[in-house]
Amino acid sequence: MTTTPWKFTAKEIVEKPELFTSGHRACAGCGPAIALRQIMKATRGPTIVTSATGCMEVVSTIYPYTAWKVPFIHTAFENVAANASGIEAALKVMKRKGRLEHENVDVIAFAGDGGTFDIGIQALSGAAERGHDFLYILYDNEAYMNTGIQRSGGTPHGASTTTSPAGRVIPGKPQYKKPIADIMVAHDIPYVATASISSWQDLLVKTRKGLEIEGPAFMHVFTPCPRGWRYDPSKTIEIARLGVETCIFPLWETIDGEYSLSPQSKILALKPERKKKVTEYLKMQRRFRHLFKPEFKHVIDEIQQMVDKRWNRLLKRCNMTQASQS
């Protein structure tokens, strides 16, 4: 990538008009709503937004109201990447035919974890392979929250949801989270990143990179959900930060397939003693409460092992030295 990194001050960001405005119907402490507001602060010009069915679509567009100050379209659940494909195709042909008013129009597609890990992965994979120029934002709140907290491919191991309830025998979701961002890296697209609402500058910079880059860009944003994760709504950012600090959700990016750690995670690679135990993260959320019963304690060990395994794999990909076992 040849573009110089986008520089901005907090004042500029505050003063930039809101494109995702207040008055939407998201819950108090909603992580995805924070992400959307921050992301829309990083747009660089004319932008069209499309969204999959899900929390953010539902809370922001209850007819006849809308929270969007940019053109917005929702069509269905599993096809937001196809929406983006159609929009981008129309922009291309209209530009060719001299019917486009603007020199450049950016396209952003939003979808939750259900709309990305599960039902939307086919359309996403297809759009990535075709190379449409758009930024796909996965706002990951780790379950189908809009329909009432059902497990998705993005739900972590051990989490209790309404379709993976913590029972007497089965301690929450038996499977592990699908490594969706790595799957997108494997599509050999020019830009893939993970980001967290706890590191807003990093999120903004990555958004701008994703928009500036030619071709498909994918960003996986960590967005805690107080309703589904069962914690006090005031703790959203704190939990998002713990996700990063425990390496449950490391921050990194790939430019043309080359992995590099972002500052908040890089520091943990350089100073492994700062890497926190997963227990600190798990104990704050009642979706993991059952794991602290003696009979399910082994699940916490399993989670720690998987986090360490994936973290070490990531360090190798980033050409970082192996962190000592925590």
Binding site: T50, T75, G86, I87, R96, A123
Partner: peptide, 23 residues
């Protein structure tokens, strides 16, 4: 602009979204 999609579901979706652009 000819888009060879990965399914009919996406083919019609892409047409719908492009149509929403005025195409």
């Amino acid at each position: 602009e000819f888009v060879c999609t990965e399914s009919e579901h996406s083919a019609l979706t892409a047409c719908l979204a492009a149509s929403a652009m005025g195409a």
